[in-house]
Write a protein that binds this DNA or RNA. Structure first.
Lengths: 275, 275
DNA sequence: TAGTGGTCTAGACCACTCA
DNA sequence: GAGTGGTCTAGACCACTAG
């Protein structure tokens, strides 16, 4: 496993020093706690356009001094902004105003994210983290993502008994991390040399002359764990949209199970509801 | 606005004192940070069943002492568990192991949460927070939930010009908070005395002899703000499933726009994808 | 009133990035 | 090596709940 491929635009400009002087110390004992006031003030300044996307914020100590709070209180405010995707912090570098969040609308019909995005002119890249072959026995719940009883269900393919292949990969849209993804397919259907340049399911369909349908989709919201945080370049605890599903072939046989954990500040999934 | 209606089961038992002695101080400098080790240890003990749902944890100071860390570090670990819905903390009372999370599977066809849940034997209650009449002009983005350009879109009803009614309410399932919800409908269609005992859209349908369809649904993930936190009884920043949508009548005219912010640790929305 | 969780501080040290 | 964010501490005070 290589480290996260960082090829990100650097700060457009550093916020000029005079800007710091426009900050007034917060007032204690005014209903709101200190970190809430700081949070609101910084958010307001960003929304009002005082700071532009990719601007670098002053350092934590200097901001803390300007607001008249301790560095820890300052960090509490900044952490909340980072969770909401308003700013982004990089260890050893600085904090930056996040670029205007480009929410992608996905019509989750029978077309993959990759195809759907490329049709709209966005570049999708899939970085494969691991491919494992497993006997189709329910593994111990502990080391599976979203452990518990659901784990065994992930490995059930009644029509294709035998070992399964387990894929872990990261999807990028326009070189910004989009999701950590997990897929399980029966080994007999697995494409032997999938390199992520096409949809996994498109590869399966080609190989075995199948038609693959997205059968059902389930949505939930979960906090980013350390692994998510690392690959998606967000703080631990950031809300992620968790999308699980089953794909079937033209005879309604399950052929793949997937779990995507998608950055909540980037993704919006749209579903047409049939009448 | 009244305070949150708390009618919650209290602790089944307090974790016995000897249990505290089974905790070993964490080892510094072993790859994981202190709070990660504490987090992992507490989570493991809960998953292994040492602590049962609704058990009350020892106080923060005593836990901190047992692990050999400062109270702040202890709190960092507990905060992460609370975000994930593993424990729940009550100010001035204590921390408790959260009950096994009951994920509800919703087939989001043309049936309301209320009907769908009651059909499955769950009690749904809707608490109305406010009903406001507004001129149908795009309001300032600042004070709308999920402000920005989307705000104006919420008020567009080309077929029913004029003022709109804005509803804010909280939905409970089995007396546990489920979502904070927000709906906008044209005033000419608004039921004059909706009390939350039935679906808002069922009331509209009855009143004006409409058939109401859930036209499209969009899913995203957002952190709980202070208002969400208050009503849903979760910490600020907890991941919420954000569900927005448009309802239309039998002639495909938009008649309502809705925004639900749903506790991520309780909800899972399932959608059948049409072939 | 006692005990709990929530906020805040000042200071220290570590881990990371970059010139 | 200088500057940044990440972690951690000991201690203090506040806000809330309950007996």
């Amino acid at each position: 496993m290589t480290g996260p491929a960082r090829a990100r635009a650097r700060a457009q400009r550093v916020v000029p020093e005079p800007w710091l002087r426009t900050i007034a110390p917060i007032r204690h004992g005014s209903g709101m706690t200190a970190w809430q006031q700081v949070h609101a003030d910084v958010l307001g300044r960003i929304q009002r356009g005082e700071l532009a996307p990719d601007d670098e914020l002053p350092s934590e100590p200097s901001l803390a001094a300007a607001y008249g709070v301790s560095r820890l209180t300052m960090r509490r405010a900044l952490a909340d902004l980072a969770h909401a995707g308003v700013i982004r912090t990089e260890h050893g570098v600085g904090s930056f105003v996040a670029p205007a969040l480009m929410r992608h609308r996905i019509d989750d019909g029978n077309v993959s994210l990759l195809e759907s995005m490329e049709r709209r002119g966005h570049a999708v890249r899939q970085l494969i983290l691991s491919v494992d072959r497993l006997e189709a026995v329910p593994p111990s719940a502990a080391d599976r993502p979203d452990g518990a009883a659901e784990a065994a269900e992930l490995f059930r393919f009644p029509d294709f008994p035998g070992p399964v292949c387990e894929y872990r990969y990261v999807r990028y849209v326009d070189e910004v991390p989009w999701s950590t993804s997990y897929a399980v397919v029966p080994e007999v259907l697995a494409p032997p040399s999938w390199d992520g340049s096409v949809s996994l399911f498109a590869a399966m369909a080609d190989l075995h002359d199948l038609e693959i349908f997205r059968e059902d989709r389930r949505f939930s919201a979960v906090p980013a764990d350390q692994d998510d945080a690392r690959w998606l370049e967000v703080p631990v605890g950031t809300p992620l949209l968790r999308l699980t599903g089953v794909n079937t072939d033209q005879r309604e046989r399950p052929v793949a199970r997937i779990v995507h954990r998608i950055r909540g500040d980037r993704a919006e999934y749209a579903v047409r509801v049939p009448r």
